[in-house]
Design a protein around this nucleic acid. Structure first.
Lengths: 112, 112
DNA sequence: CTCGATATGTAGTAAATCTATCTATCGCGA
DNA sequence: TCGCGATAGATAGATTTACTACATATCGAG
């Protein structure tokens, strides 16, 4: 998956991953990559600012920990974040429904 | 559908509409709105610059006509545009597949 | 005759992702 | 032992793309 087809969708993806269990940023990237079979390959430069925005918006909460000199920031979903996720999932279904009927067809040319 | 969830997807939608038959810009907006049951409501300020980009890229071709003093610019898909559409449709399927498995679930909370 | 729909267009703004770069630790292989 | 890749987090600036607001012009309805 290239470019910014993700625009506006990434936030929901991150919330969905965090809804399962609290994990740290780097692990979110790996999780998205694994669960999409490599299709979603975001970089730190994309994810970390997004997580900061989510925290500022009160959708996630973070706590620092250190494991062998390596500092980790573990994020978890807040109640607000949970509600936001539910909305995003609803919006996702609408989105797929709206675009699917137009994009899904093989489009074998003019139906003249 | 609000905001820029469409980002990166609108180009494919327009190509898909034009693949059926050549129509003019305003009619493309109406077609997208009708086929999405009102979910896709783009404005002229979004569509016309996009059509110009598509034409510059050689994916569509346009011709002017006049009907009762009203000038219309009718767009049609080029061969390049047809190939681009096929790519976009493939990318769409990948996109839905990749995000669907993550976003589709009702997410009833941590599966602890 | 004015208003809304039709029809096309430009200018400037906003937001989100991208690339590039930086810091720092750890484990592994040469 | 030395360096490199993976892990882990972060910032800065560029780019893309949709948005709003505005401008023009014709036509039909009230």
């Amino acid at each position: 998956m290239q470019a910014d087809l993700l625009k506006g969708h990434l936030e929901g993806l991150v919330l969905a991953v965090l809804a399962e269990r609290p994990i740290h940023g780097y692990a979110i990237m790996e999780s998205l990559k694994a669960r999409s079979h490599g299709a979603i390959g975001i970089e730190g430069g994309t994810l970390y600012p997004l997580l900061h925005r989510l925290e500022e918006a009160g959708l996630v909460r973070s706590s620092w920990s250190t494991q062998g000199g390596r500092r980790r920031r573990t994020y978890s979903l807040t109640a607000r974040g949970g509600r936001a996720l539910a909305e995003k999932q609803g919006a996702w279904r609408e989105f797929v429904s709206a675009l699917g009927s137009i994009m899904a067809e093989p489009s074998t040319g003019p139906a003249k």
